[in-house]
Measured scan of single mutants.
Amino acid sequence: MEVRTIKVFTTVDNINLHTQVVDMSMTYGQQFGPTYLDGADVTKIKPHNSHEGKTFYVLPNDDTLRVEAFEYYHTTDPSFLGRYMSALNHTKKWKYPQVNGLTSIKWADNNCYLATALLTLQQIELKFNPPALQDAYYRARAGEAANFCALILAYCNKTVGELGDVRETMSYLFQHANLDSCKRVLNVVCKTCGQQQTTLKGVEAVMYMGTLSYEQFKKGVQIPCTCGKQATKYLVQQESPFVMMSAPPAQYELKHGTFTCASEYTGNYQCGHYKHITSKETLYCIDGALLTKSSEYKGPITDVFYKENSYTTTIK
């Protein structure tokens, strides 16, 4: 009895394709271990004539594949690729409408935090270190965002349907971005203890939790000093293409032309909904596939993004 075979390709990165001759009487799992086709788990399936010449994702289970996976995804987590594939199996079914010149995501599976993050990423200057993220990001900007969303979920250790947080998501993504040249110098002034300067680099240099107003941050924000008295913390120097200011959701007025974009969060910790506000020729609110415009805006804002380049204080 002759062994019926077909020729397929296996890959971990969709760049390096490895030619395989597979036995049609055995499952993919018996031949390769966990195997995925377009995100779908085909591990328990036997090869079919229609699979001839198709590319299958496999887990990096030998040295060659491990090197290829690390170079593309910059992670050695053995569960990463499987999590990416199972997320992709959902995100490829989502709709990605162009809204006001940006790629958004039609609401499904509690994905409003991903839509808000995706919209924000198209408006701030950011370059990702893992080629996987950078490639998928370019495709997302062009309207094909399924891979990018699935990668975000995998890097953030999230599953489809789980509630997510924009600030946490951005923080994970910033860790995989090139923020080497970003720098922030802060000064804390206390009447009792004097003053202390701190220099922050990388992710810490672009994120701040405690106030939404970048102007206020430049002037000074009140913080408790270690001595128990009130101290003032203010920005001395900022070198970065953008800054992200966050605070627990509270009524906040966004003035046209003073910011790049913002995240609105309605609801409580267990259950809520994100919308995205962007400042173009007027203010726009993007909620999944829905767009509304207004000249002014007041609502429960939790993150505001500002364009920056270089700032030095005039406070002496």
Rank of each mutant, 00 (worst) to 15 (best):
R4V: 13
T5C: 14
T5H: 11
I6L: 15
I6N: 06
K7Q: 13
V8H: 05
F9I: 09
T11M: 06
D13S: 06
N14M: 13
I15W: 09
I15H: 15
I15E: 08
L17S: 07
H18V: 07
H18S: 06
H18A: 07
H18M: 06
T19D: 13
T19K: 13
Q20S: 13
V21T: 14
V21Y: 15
V22Y: 02
V22P: 10
S25G: 11
M26T: 06
Q30M: 10
Q30W: 09
Q31N: 13
F32N: 08
G33N: 04
G33Q: 04
G33R: 05
G33T: 04
T35P: 07
T35Q: 05
Y36I: 04
L37W: 14
L37A: 12
L37K: 11
D38A: 10
D38C: 10
G39A: 15
G39R: 06
A40P: 07
D41H: 09
V42Q: 12
T43G: 13
K46Q: 15
K46S: 12
H48V: 13
N49H: 15
G53H: 12
K54L: 14
T55S: 12
F56K: 04
V58W: 05
L59E: 15
T64V: 14
L65Q: 08
R66T: 10
R66L: 12
R66S: 10
R66Q: 12
V67T: 14
A69Y: 10
F70P: 04
Y73F: 09
H74K: 08
T75I: 10
T76N: 09
T76Y: 11
T76C: 15
F80G: 04
L81D: 05
L81E: 07
R83W: 03
Y84S: 03
Y84L: 06
A87M: 05
L88M: 07
N89I: 14
H90D: 08
K92E: 06
K93P: 05
K93I: 06
K95W: 08
K95Y: 07
P97C: 15
Q98W: 07
Q98A: 09
V99H: 13
N100S: 14
L102W: 06
T103C: 08
S104P: 02
S104N: 06
S104T: 11
S104F: 05
I105W: 03
W107Q: 03
A108D: 08
N111L: 05
N111F: 03
C112Y: 03
C112N: 04
Y113E: 03
T116H: 06
L118P: 04
L118F: 11
T120N: 11
I124A: 03
I124M: 06
L126E: 02
K127C: 09
F128Q: 04
N129C: 08
P130Q: 03
A132M: 03
L133C: 07
D135Q: 10
A142C: 15
G143C: 03
E144R: 08
N147M: 10
N147V: 10
F148Y: 02
C149E: 04
L151M: 07
L151W: 02
I152N: 03
I152T: 09
L153W: 06
L153P: 03
Y155P: 00
Y155F: 03
Y155Q: 05
C156W: 00
C156N: 06
K158G: 02
T159R: 14
T159D: 13
T159A: 15
V160M: 02
V160E: 02
G161R: 04
G161C: 05
E162P: 00
L163P: 14
L163Y: 15
D165K: 02
D165A: 06
E168V: 08
Y172C: 09
Y172N: 15
L173W: 04
L173P: 01
L173I: 10
F174Y: 05
Q175M: 08
Q175S: 09
H176M: 09
A177F: 01
L179K: 08
L179Y: 00
L179P: 04
L179Q: 02
S181K: 12
S181F: 11
C182H: 01
C182W: 07
K183F: 11
R184C: 05
R184Q: 07
R184W: 05
R184V: 02
N187H: 11
N187F: 06
N187R: 14
N187M: 15
N187P: 04
N187C: 14
V189D: 14
K191L: 09
T192Q: 12
C193F: 01
Q195H: 11
Q195N: 13
Q195R: 10
T199S: 09
T199I: 12
T199M: 10
T199V: 12
K201W: 15
K201T: 15
M207T: 12
M207E: 05
M209E: 10
M209A: 15
L212I: 08
Y214E: 01
Y214H: 03
Y214S: 01
Y214F: 11
F217R: 00
K219N: 12
G220K: 02
V221F: 10
Q222E: 13
I223D: 07
C227M: 00
G228V: 01
G228A: 01
K229L: 12
K229C: 10
A231C: 08
T232D: 05
Y234K: 08
L235Y: 00
L235T: 03
L235M: 03
V236E: 06
V236C: 08
S240K: 01
S240M: 00
P241H: 08
P241K: 10
P241C: 06
F242W: 09
M244D: 00
M245Y: 00
M245E: 01
A247I: 02
A250W: 05
Q251D: 12
E253N: 10
L254N: 02
K255C: 11
H256P: 14
H256D: 06
G257N: 08
F259G: 00
C261D: 00
S263Q: 03
E264V: 11
Y265Q: 01
G267N: 07
G267D: 13
Y269W: 15
Y269A: 15
C271F: 13
H273V: 01
H273S: 00
K275Y: 00
T278F: 12
T278H: 08
S279N: 09
K280R: 14
E281D: 14
E281S: 07
T282N: 11
L283W: 02
C285F: 10
C285T: 13
C285H: 10
L290N: 15
L291A: 13
L291K: 10
K293S: 14
S294D: 09
S294K: 11
S295P: 10
E296W: 12
P300R: 14
I301H: 00
T302H: 00
T302V: 09
T302E: 00
D303M: 04
D303H: 01
V304N: 02
F305Q: 00
F305N: 00
K307S: 14
K307Q: 10
N309S: 12
N309A: 14
S310N: 12
S310P: 07
Y311L: 10
Y311F: 12
Y311C: 00
T313E: 12
I315Y: 15
K316T: 07
